[in-house]
Design a protein around this nucleic acid. Structure first.
Lengths: 114, 114
DNA sequence: GTAAGCAGTTACCTAAAGGTAAGCAGTAAC
DNA sequence: GTTACTGCTTACCTTTAGGTAACTGCTTAC
């Protein structure tokens, strides 16, 4: 039983909270995964994620762009093409996503095993 | 540019979603961090987490217990003592929390640096 | 000329998460 | 005997996340 160090405890909690503020919610990581798996167009992303709708997708894409996790580029050919790509900064989330995925796989096993 | 593999993409997204279902939200990880930092009593945990309130804490503790991430023990001394401890299963979240924390620290630096 | 695809937007609604404030039963301290 | 601590619960309210459905302007395909 460790001694409760209030300062140390806070210094662990606050960054975790910061991270969750950016990535939690039902869709953000799924969108990042979809884009980095090769889906770059709005409708492509939409179709790749079950049950998402265009309003939510549009909003989440804006959020992700504000956090500089994705980049939106408009190619002014006719017809206009809009492309979403992940930024190098998004790659820094790779480990986070990997650990979440591994844990999720294991957790599902545990629950089904019951 | 990778080719979009729908199946592979889904098999990455769904476990991540499963994991987030368990740990996302404003308080769950903070509570786990608090308990594993040595806060084991209800009021102790409450005081260690800024801005949380007892209604929310009580509810989140129940959720965490249902997911077998913490264990609640009542010691029937007088006065009754209630103790919360993390389970070995919660330890499996260690890497997830570490990566979230590291990313959060870095993200904060990046934002302040702007 | 009508249908269908593109990248969204708009108005409206529901459900869930979270917050506020008060209170309760028990104990113990002053 | 009043105050304060424990571990909660209750009723009520607000805020936000997310969902539905329709519709826009533009383009190309049949």
């Amino acid at each position: 039983m460790k001694k409760a160090d209030h300062t140390e405890c806070l210094s662990a909690m606050l960054p975790v909270r910061d991270a969750l503020d950016v990535i939690s919610g039902k869709w953000k990581l799924m969108i990042l995964i979809s884009i980095s798996s090769g889906n770059h167009r709005f409708r492509e992303i939409e179709r790749s994620i079950p049950k998402i709708n265009s309003k939510v997708l549009a909003k989440e894409l804006k959020d992700l762009e504000e956090h500089t996790l994705i980049k939106r580029t408009v190619y002014d050919e006719s017809p206009v093409i809009v492309e979403y790509i992940t930024t190098p900064y998004a790659a820094s989330l790779g480990k986070v996503i990997k650990e979440l995925r591994d844990w999720g796989v294991n957790h599902r096993k545990k629950i089904i095993g019951k």
